[in-house]
């Protein structure tokens, strides 16, 4: 049990609007163990980033956690005050966002930003913190650290900046890192460097990582387990090999089929008809039922849920037939 770093239970995130309450994250439960990378995948608006933000305590008002709980290594963190949450963020949860430029202050040297963050979370002296900053920069693969430590963010390339952001996230040796689209703004060759780095850090330090991305390729290559989201709900959870090779949810299967292959030739890509529903018009029953080729009456009536560690939220997959 002590192995579980993040334990999210029945999380529900709501946005009250003039037209009514929108549910952006609907009853999501998941866990991440020490040294494990969980990939959160889904298309725009599926609620994957929102889940990450809820864990970080960074939901923009009026968004709020309406139900459920979030535990970090046994401590409940979803009901902390902003002040207490600030202590958790940075020290116990690190965050990496898509655009490294917005995560770094353009007016300060990267070394000073690292030193400031390290000192905020530890008792090190300035000189010690600077040494530690250099170690971190080396660890994330920045060459010529002695010179680079006094450079400004704009003097780094996109890939190098993202490495600095990762170093920042590692400053306090957090138990969990939430990485939201960390490679989306980068070219493929740089993307591969960053995912390899994340994997290595996770393995060596035992950090749990929640990797949020729309890119199934990145997930397949980096994650141990994957959670597929659709319209705010979990569609499927499982080991990455299983979900990628033998998807059990029709949505996951459609998603995999719509990605052009690097190996086999198809004249036409598989298509999922229609589009993901808007949050104010989520169909009753299974949210995917209007687009699903196998949907039956039960799918239009009852919401299927993911149960256990390896499962699809689909009546067809769980009961074998749609009554």
């Amino acid at each position: 049990m002590s192995d579980i770093v993040l334990d999210v239970r029945n999380l529900r995130v709501e946005f009250p609007t003039r037209k009514g309450v929108l549910t952006a994250v609907d009853d999501i439960s998941l866990t991440i163990r020490r040294g494990e990378i969980l990939g959160m995948v889904g298309e725009s608006g599926a609620g994957k980033s929102m889940t990450g933000m809820a864990i970080l305590g960074l939901l923009e008002p009026p968004g709020r956690i309406a139900a459920g709980s979030i535990h970090l290594s046994g401590d409940r963190i979803d009901n902390l005050s902003d002040r207490e949450m600030q202590q958790v963020r940075g020290r116990r949860i690190g965050a990496i966002f898509q655009d490294p430029l917005t995560s770094l202050n353009p007016l300060f040297r990267v070394g000073d930003q690292l030193v400031e963050t390290i000192r905020l979370h530890t008792d090190l002296t300035k000189a010690q913190a600077r040494e530690r900053a250099k170690d971190l920069m080396r660890e994330v693969g920045i060459p010529a650290v002695e010179e680079r430590i006094d450079n400004y963010p704009h003097q780094f390339s996109g890939g190098m900046r993202q490495r600095i952001v990762i170093a920042l996230a590692l400053c306090a040796e957090p138990e969990l890192i939430v990485a939201d689209e960390p490679t989306t703004a980068l070219d493929v060759s740089i993307q591969a460097q960053i995912t390899a780095l994340l994997k290595r850090l996770c393995r060596e330090r035992g950090t749990a990582v929640m990797l949020v991305t729309h890119d199934m390729g990145v997930i397949a290559e980096t994650a141990d387990r994957v959670a597929v989201m659709y319209a705010g709900r979990l569609a499927e959870v499982g080991a990455v090999e299983d979900v990628v090779r033998r998807p059990r949810h029709p949505y996951t299967a459609g998603l995999m089929g719509s990605i052009p292959s690097l190996r086999s030739d198809v004249e036409e890509l598989q298509m999922i008809p229609g589009a993901m529903p808007r949050l104010d018009a989520i169909p009753s029953g299974c949210a995917f039922n209007p687009r699903c080729a196998h949907a039956g009456p039960k799918c239009r009536r009852d919401i299927p849920r993911v149960e256990g560690t390896q499962a699809a939220a689909c009546w067809l997959a769980t009961e074998g037939a749609v009554a």
Partner: peptide
Amino acid sequence: TIPDLEAPKRDRTP
């Protein structure tokens, strides 16, 4: 370098 869906969890030298 490109992630390959048909070979998940591949370890490679970028």
